[in-house]
Simulated scan of single mutants.
Amino acid sequence: MHTVLVLIHAASGTTGLLLALPILLAPKRRGRHTLLGRVYAVAAAGLSLSALGLFALDPARLWGLAILGVLTLGWLLGGLWFARRRPRGLGGRGWRVWHLNLMGSTVIAFVTGFAVQLTDGNLVAWLAPTAIGSVLIARRTARELARAPRRIVVGAAG
């Protein structure tokens, strides 16, 4: 069972890492972005669930993997929910900001896992992807908000 979980985890992680940049660079509309996004979502789910399976086999040693797996799964489900539902109460494009932040967080998780694996758990590998990725997400969020139509608030005269 351990070998099967490791294979699923490695294949899912590799797929997600390979797809992250093309998805980020693809025009944000139906077509390439959504097609690649669906494959990425399957990879992220496979990565998260295999992480939890591996944790169940060795909880004392793999607790960090479990935390990353749970967070990634939560970000993935949230990002997919916003993309599917596109709630109107957030303003015209507000759902895109949430989708961007949540899915961007899954990319940070993929990069963190990869970096931690390469460095055998170095603390910088745990922290640097979040520090760098958060800045990149914030910049992209600012650009998205600048593109959003301005709402005119009508209030009582006074």
Results as ranks from 00 to 15, higher is better:
Ala11Met: 13
Gly16Glu: 07
Gly16Trp: 00
Leu36Ala: 07
Ala41Gly: 10
Thr15His: 06
Gly37Asn: 08
Ile23His: 04
Leu25Gln: 07
Val4Ala: 13
Ser12Asp: 01
Ala20Ile: 15
Arg32Tyr: 03
Ser12Met: 06
Gly13Arg: 00
Leu21Ala: 14
Val6Thr: 07
His33Lys: 12
Val6Leu: 15
Ala11Ile: 14
Thr15Met: 08
Leu25Met: 14
Tyr40Trp: 10
Pro27Gly: 07
Pro22Gly: 06
Leu36Phe: 10
Leu5Asn: 11
Ile8Met: 10
Thr34Leu: 09
Arg30Pro: 01
Leu17Ala: 12
Ile8Tyr: 05
Arg32His: 05
Ala10Pro: 01
Arg32Ser: 05
Ala11Gly: 06
Leu7Pro: 01
Arg38Ser: 14
Thr14Ile: 15
Ala26Asp: 09
Arg30Leu: 03
Val39Arg: 04
Leu21Gly: 03
Ala26Ile: 05
Ile8Leu: 15
Leu19Phe: 13
His9Trp: 02
Ala41Trp: 00
His9Asn: 13
Arg29Val: 15
Ala26Leu: 03
Leu5Gly: 09
Ile23Tyr: 04
Ala10Cys: 07
Leu7Ala: 15
Leu21Glu: 10
Pro22Tyr: 11
Leu17Gln: 06
Thr3Glu: 13
Ala10Lys: 02
Gly16Gln: 09
Ala41Leu: 07
Leu18Cys: 13
Leu7Met: 10
Thr34Cys: 02
Pro22Trp: 10
Leu7Ile: 15
Thr14Cys: 09
Val39Glu: 06
Leu24Val: 05
Gly37Asp: 03
Ala41Lys: 02
Thr34Gly: 02
Val6Ala: 13
Ile8Glu: 03
Leu19Gly: 04
Arg30Thr: 01
Lys28His: 14
Leu7Trp: 03
Leu36Val: 05
Ile8Pro: 00
Leu7Thr: 15
Gly37Thr: 15
Ala11Phe: 14
Leu21His: 03
Pro22Arg: 08
Tyr40Cys: 08
Leu36Trp: 08
Leu35Glu: 11
Arg30Asn: 02
Thr3Ile: 09
Arg32Thr: 14
Arg38Cys: 15
Arg30Ser: 02
His33Trp: 07
Gly37Met: 13
Leu19Arg: 05
Gly16Tyr: 07
Val39Leu: 15
Leu19Ser: 07
Arg29Pro: 04
Ala41Glu: 01
Gly37Cys: 11
Gly16Asn: 08
His33Glu: 07
Ala20Lys: 01
Thr3Cys: 02
Pro22Leu: 10
Gly16Asp: 09
Thr15Ser: 12
Lys28Gly: 06
Ala26Asn: 13
Gly16Arg: 00
Leu18Gln: 04
His33Gly: 11
Pro22Lys: 08
Gly31Tyr: 10
Leu18Met: 14
His33Leu: 11
Leu5Lys: 07
Ile8Arg: 05
Val6Pro: 00
Pro27Gln: 12
Ile8Lys: 07
Val42Cys: 10
Pro27Tyr: 04
Ala20Cys: 13
Val4Lys: 07
His33Thr: 01
Ile23Glu: 02
